[in-house]
Each structure stands twice: as C-alpha cells, then as structure tokens.
Design a protein around this nucleic acid. Structure first.
Lengths: 184, 184
DNA sequence: TATATGCTTGAGCGATCGTTCAAGTAAAGC
DNA sequence: GCTTTACTTGAACGATCGCTCAAGCATATA
C-alpha cells in the first residue's frame, strides 16, 4: 500500500510491486487480478485506516469539537515525522487520475466524501450539544475542514515543511476551537 | 502548458504533445531539447502567470490584507468555472515527482516558496500599516494561507466541488479579513 | 510409488514510452 | 539554375509497460 501511496498508480510499475511483495507476475495476477484491482484494495485499506483513526480520536475526546481539534494536532505530529509520503492518498489519486482511469478517481472521491461526512457528523453533534452556534452549517464547516486537511497534508510534502507543520496544524486546531470560544 | 497541467509530467506522452503542438518528434526535440525541459518551461510559465495575477490583485486593492482576500475570492470564482484542471500545477508536480525526477520537484518547490514569499510580504505590509496585530508572524500567516489555497484548489478538483467552492473561498477570505477586525 | 491438484515461475507477448537521425523539403544567396 | 542553409519529417531504436501462459514444483491423495 505504501508503495502505491508514495508513487501513485501510474508511477508504480509491476517491477516495483514484484520487489515489494516478493512475488512473480504470475502469482500477483493470480492473487489480485490486475494492477488496478490491487490499487483499489490498497486505496480501500488506506481509507479504512484513516476512518478508524478519526473515529477513535473522536470517541476518546471530551467533546466532538475537541475531537476534531485533536485529530488535526495528531495529524500535525504525524506529518512532522520523516515518512515516505505525507499527502493524502485519496487526494493524490484524484489528482493523478485522468479520464481513462475514471474508476479510480470516482472511488477516491467517494472515500473522501465519507471522511467529510464523518467531519460533518462531528460538527452536527457539536452544534446539537450547543458547543458551536446554531447558525453554523455543519456541511460547510466539514468541507472547510476537509480542505484545510488536504492543504496541510499537501504542504507537508514540501521538503522544508517539517519546521512549519506543527505551527500550521496548531493554527487549524485553534480555529476549530475558536468556533466554541466565540460563542461563549 | 495546459496539457502538462492537467495530465502531469509522466501522464503526458509525447504523442499528446505532438497532437497539441501539431509538431513531429524531431521538431519538438529541436525546439525544446527534451520532454523534461519542455515541462520545466511550462512550469515556469505557470508560476509566472500566477505571480503576475497575484501582484496585480494586490496592487489594485485598497490594502494588502484586502488584496489577499480579493485574491482568494477571485480564485474561488475561477475555480467555480468548468475548466480542465483546478489544482495548482506546482502542487501536482510536487506530489507526482519521485526521486528520479527530483529536479522537477525542487523546481516546483522553489516556485511555490516564491508565491509564499509574496504572501509574506503582503502580510508584513499589512502589519507595518497596523492593519493586523504586531504579534502576528507574517511568515506563519503566509504558510497558513499557502496551505489554505492548496487545500482549496485540491478540493476544487472534486467533481462535486462547484457548489461548495465559493462558500469555501468566502470563508477563507473572511478569516483573512478577521485578522483586521479582531484588532479594532 | 504413482497420480492428481493447486500454486509459482519467468520467458516472452504486443503496446507504448522517450528519443534519435538519415532523408526530405523549402527558402536564401549567388 | 544551382548550391547552401535551416528546418521538418517519420521510421525506427532500445527500454519499459501491464499482462499471459506453458512448464515446473511441491504437497496431498490413492
């Protein structure tokens, strides 16, 4: 999965996959069917893990809004560590897929919408709990947060990012919390 | 340029370029040297145009901060229109480039830093003019804005984005202006 | 031990990649 | 009209792409 994540769909050759899985082409095709199917399962795995991480952070937090802020701060800490790739795999897939790979694009979009729906539910819960003003639209807040996270992760890909990422994620988290404080 | 922008470096084949320029391979190589050099000049052209657009918007605005807010709103309007590609070409290049294309990655990063420097100068000017609080760091604000713009443009790539983009850019622009209003 | 079964192997398929270069074409100078 | 010069052409190169399949291997069953 990490291979596809870092190099993308078209950028990963079967040679790379053979080496990573220590399998020969025949076995790979017997097990996964095609490069595209293998990529899609990698994409699904990525999305599931992301969703799990988010829901765990949300459930551990004292409130939905703090949960979202925690999520952003955790992300910032993760992105400050040196890893192969930082940017969101769904975003990378969406950006690299052309028309003849529309299936992948659509799949990535769908999964991204699921994440955004989780954000929306959290904002909705925060509003129901009176933590944020009633005139705030959870859908709009969710797309804003989605966009901020995409931006943060894309920015993190820059080689000079490590020193700025924690400030960035802290700013985003503070803005989330400010939704509550401006209401008191 | 648009071809490279939409499909990326590796995703654009010489066949595509031949068709787009109505030139045969020999002429292309005589004129540009290599696919990589052609891509780099496309990247440079893109960055120059972006920079020009930004500086024009800034110079037309009543104040640096309003200039930045205008820039974001203009971007939102542009992204709401149906175009081939929305996401920033520098970001796409940064994300798709692997280690064997490090030259492209570095070039894209450099150009992105120039944009960010322009943001920083505008924030600095706003602070010097007393428009934003003195304890605000222009560098930090600039990286935040850079990240927000990257996020906005990546989000705009989604097929269901058109309806949300203007809200998103409006939210970002308001947050910029709030740097001033919270100071009054 | 002989046979059947399921999995792995890697040579090789046709297609496409970026790139080159001998040959062809067109305009300029004499 | 002939030569020179500058530019264009497209066939073809080696490399690599995703993928296939006859052959080989190892284990289970008889």
């Amino acid at each position: 999965m990490i291979l596809f994540w870092t190099r993308g769909y078209a950028g990963t050759s079967l040679k790379d996959i053979e080496a990573a899985l220590d399998m020969r082409p025949g076995s790979i095709y017997a097990a996964f069917g095609s490069k595209e199917k293998l990529f899609r399962s990698a994409l699904t795995l990525y999305a599931e893990r992301s969703r799990t991480a988010l829901s765990e952070t949300l459930s551990e937090a004292a409130s939905p809004l703090e949960g979202l802020a925690d999520h952003v701060r955790k992300l910032g800490r993760a992105l400050a560590a040196p890893t192969q790739t930082k940017a969101c795999m769904l975003m990378k897939t969406m950006l690299e897929s052309s028309d003849n790979e529309r299936v992948l694009r659509d799949a990535a979009e769908d999964m991204m919408r699921q994440t955004e729906a989780a954000f929306r539910d959290a904002f909705q819960a925060a509003r129901d709990a009176g933590q944020i003003p009633a005139d705030r639209d959870p859908v709009r807040l969710a797309s804003r947060l989605q966009s901020e996270v995409l931006g943060l992760r894309a920015y993190a890909q820059r080689s000079d990012a490590p020193g700025r990422i924690e400030d960035l994620s802290e700013d985003i988290a503070r803005d989330l919390e400010a939704l509550a404080t401006c209401f008191r």
